[in-house]
């Protein structure tokens, strides 16, 4: 029965095991898991992928012990302000970045191991009313924060020891930035989505705001997850937590949209909708890696889509032990991490 429940089901086709359970870890000291992620970690000349789990007051680092088991290496205790999320830093080694706050992010901290003092420590990167944050390649982090009067958008460059080497201010749009995504293959280009439902483009080297392009009124509160430039067009993967259900396309969870940055015109390339039986507004949170998207639905299931084909490829049904609450792609597409609030994390190969 347990094996049966672990087998993902392809809802609009034959039963297909496109998600294979690789391993599971359980943080028994965790009262309520808030996030899970992966990080590259180098120790004694060996670089390996480790799992990071977060509860409101702790962040734990897990190393692979055997093909199917994990052991806790270290736990950072952050008791003053609750941990809200782990901020993945692509291609960065031995650094974990976390956002802390109450309802909104109040500070960003780096968690690291110092070989100089042979100890784990953490350092403050930024404080403020932070609305959106993203980790970029080459140890960079961009965040937007608001005061009563204005919005600040800033990029911080980290040193390997966790200090901030350099800061660059980016020109803020008039509307509040809700999410960022780096433009893959273009080191100096960054996109963001705004509360006014536009996609904006920056030049990270100069800080210039290059373009603001409207997404459309049918898709309010769009969130950008991934962007890449091809053949003179900017392709942006958006998720739509508040999009309305329509007869023609159901409930779009993810959408790939092609923008012409020269003219600001756009066209939808592909929709990825809620699988049959999950109609209505049931999307809680999602994550995108390459051309695959994953989202937790309010039913407690995790759904996985091929975003370029617009097809739901697999559904992880809720376990008898509890609903899924977290879905994250491991760094480099090493698999899908599905987490429950009780601290259970399962790694699936996709």
């Amino acid at each position: 029965d347990v094996a049966e429940q672990l087998t993902p089901v392809l809802l609009d086709g034959p039963r297909e095991e496109s998600l294979q359970l690789v391993s599971e870890l359980k943080d028994s000291s965790c009262s309520c898991a808030v996030d899970v992620s992966t990080v590259w970690w180098e120790a004694a000349g060996c670089r390996e992928l480790r799992v990071v789990t977060a509860s409101e007051s702790t962040v734990s680092l897990w190393e692979p012990l055997a093909p199917d088991s994990w052991g806790k290496v270290y736990t950072w205790h952050l008791r003053e302000i609750p941990v809200i999320q782990i901020i993945p830093l692509p291609d960065t080694c031995n650094l974990v970045c976390v956002a802390l706050g109450e309802l909104e992010i109040g500070e960003i901290r780096l968690l690291l191991y110092s070989s100089e003092t042979d100890s784990f420590k953490h350092s403050l990167v930024k404080t403020g009313n932070i609305k959106a944050v993203v980790g970029l390649e080459d140890q960079r982090l961009v965040s937007s924060s608001r005061t009563m009067q204005e919005q600040q958008v800033e990029m911080v460059l980290f040193s390997e020891t966790g200090g901030s080497k350099d800061r660059q201010t980016l020109m803020p749009p008039e509307e509040t930035v809700t999410a960022f995504a780096e433009v893959e293959g273009m080191r100096e280009a960054l996109v963001g989505t705004t509360a006014g439902n536009s996609v904006v483009v920056w030049n990270l080297k100069t800080g210039q705001l290059l373009r603001k392009m409207h997404v459309g009124y049918s898709y309010p509160a769009s969130i950008c997850h991934r962007a890449y430039s091809d053949s003179g067009l900017l392709f942006v993967v958006l998720s739509h937590p508040l999009a309305k259900e329509s007869e023609s396309c159901g409930s779009p969870v993810f959408r790939v949209v092609a923008f012409n940055p020269r003219t600001g015109r756009s066209t939808g390339v592909m929709f990825s909708c809620l699988p049959p039986g999950h109609a209505g507004r049931q999307y809680l949170e999602g994550d995108v890696w390459d051309t695959t998207g994953a989202a937790v639905l309010t039913s407690g299931a995790v759904a996985v889509w091929d975003l370029l084909r617009g097809r739901c490829m697999a559904v992880l049904c809720p376990d008898p032990a509890g609903h899924w609450a977290l879905a994250r792609w491991a760094t480099g597409g090493a698999g899908l991490l599905a987490g429950r609030r009780d601290g259970t994390v399962r790694l699936y190969r996709y």
């Binding site: 280009a189 030049n203 100069t206 430039s229 053949s231 003179g232 012409n260 940055p261 020269r262 015109r265």
Partner: peptide, 23 residues
């Protein structure tokens, strides 16, 4: 450059917009 429903497309859009945008 080429013409499409999305208007005139340029492969060098990033460099061109950076040259045109206010510093």
């Amino acid at each position: 450059c080429s013409e499409s429903d999305l208007g005139l497309i340029s492969l060098n859009w990033f460099e061109e917009l950076s040259a045109e945008a206010p510093p």
